[in-house]
């Protein structure tokens, strides 16, 4: 099967809307801890709606690439087989982990992903603040090996949709901690709050989609600490809610830096280095911010 018979994300849209309304209502009643700001929420919704435009423009090309790879597959995983769904659940989630890690740790892909982190709030609407430039960034190619292994493009698309729908509900401050067994295995609001935090201690952690086990396995897990409340946003927050700025500011930053690059090394650094990389180290990266934070908070002997 090439075309997915249904799209989990489209099916979930009414749930997304109702859940956001419910979260706002509960916050107004003072029953849950969450903060909404009108312009911030509208920006998130507009980014979510606008995502469909580049999706429509590049979707065909991405689908064609998936079909091409699938035609050269080494196995065939039956669409109806339970074991196939179990396998793709883990493999897609592992792929997502590396996609997400790459999207934070290398500037070219960060330029596409950063908009999802630009809100200074953390609520269900933040989940909808999606990239407009993911197709151009090419991270979709990370899922092609699944087609090569024999998972149909339809099955991959459905599992990607399930992952995206799962990740919606974890964008909230309304839920504190889930039961310990759940926190140990699954990505949760608590884990993902840490991921969205700009506190130096929390930077570049918890890249998980559905299962938090990948972060624990690859050394990027950071638990939420009561003594360090999350502060949301990016290291250098945006100055306004201009949609074009939200969507493209890091891309413009890359091109501006490239225009003054003086060597191949600088070109590579500005494009493929970590966000914040600069030839003389005058800008901060996540690593340098963490180092400074550790020095400032080093226990005195």
């Amino acid at each position: 099967m090439l075309h997915a018979p249904f799209d989990p994300v489209t099916l979930a849209v009414p749930f997304f809307v109702l859940a956001i309304i419910l979260e706002i209502a509960l916050a107004r009643l003072g029953w849950v801890k969450t903060h909404y700001e009108t312009r911030d929420t509208l920006t998130s919704l507009a980014m979510g709606l606008g995502r469909g435009i580049p999706g429509a423009l590049l979707g065909g090309m991405i689908f064609a690439a998936s079909v091409f790879v699938y035609q050269h597959r080494i196995f065939t995983v039956p669409f109806e087989a339970i074991w196939g769904w179990v396998a793709i659940f883990f493999l897609e989630d592992l792929t997502y982990y590396w996609f997400h890690r790459l999207s934070h740790e290398r500037r070219f892909w960060w330029a596409s992903h950063v908009n999802h982190h630009t809100s200074q709030h953390y609520n269900l609407s933040t989940a909808l603040r999606q990239t407009w430039t993911g197709g151009i960034a090419g991270t979709w190619s990370l899922w092609l090996p699944l087609a090569w292994l024999g998972f149909s493009p339809a099955q991959i698309a459905i599992q990607q949709g399930i992952s995206l729908v799962y990740q919606f509900w974890i964008h909230t401050e309304a839920i504190g901690r889930m039961p310990a067994w759940f926190e140990a295995v699954m990505n949760t609001p608590s884990h993902h709050r840490v991921h969205h935090a700009r506190n130096p201690r929390y930077l570049d952690s918890n890249y998980a989609g559905i299962l938090i086990i990948w972060d624990k396995l690859f050394g990027t897990f950071q638990g939420e600490l009561d003594e360090e409340p999350c502060r949301y946003g990016i290291v250098k927050n945006l100055g306004d809610f201009n949609l074009l700025r939200v969507a493209f500011h890091e891309w413009i930053g890359i091109f501006t830096d490239l225009a003054r690059a003086r060597s191949i090394r600088e070109v590579f650094g500005y494009v493929l280095g970590p966000p914040g990389w600069s030839p003389d180290g005058s800008r901060d990266t996540s690593a340098s911010l963490k180092t400074k934070w550790r020095l400032l908070h080093k226990p005195t002997e």
Binding site: K236, N237, G239
Partner: peptide, 9 residues
């Protein structure tokens, strides 16, 4: 300075 109900530095 303020951006919405947050601050930017």
């Amino acid at each position: 300075f303020a951006a919405g109900d947050g601050y930017v530095a």
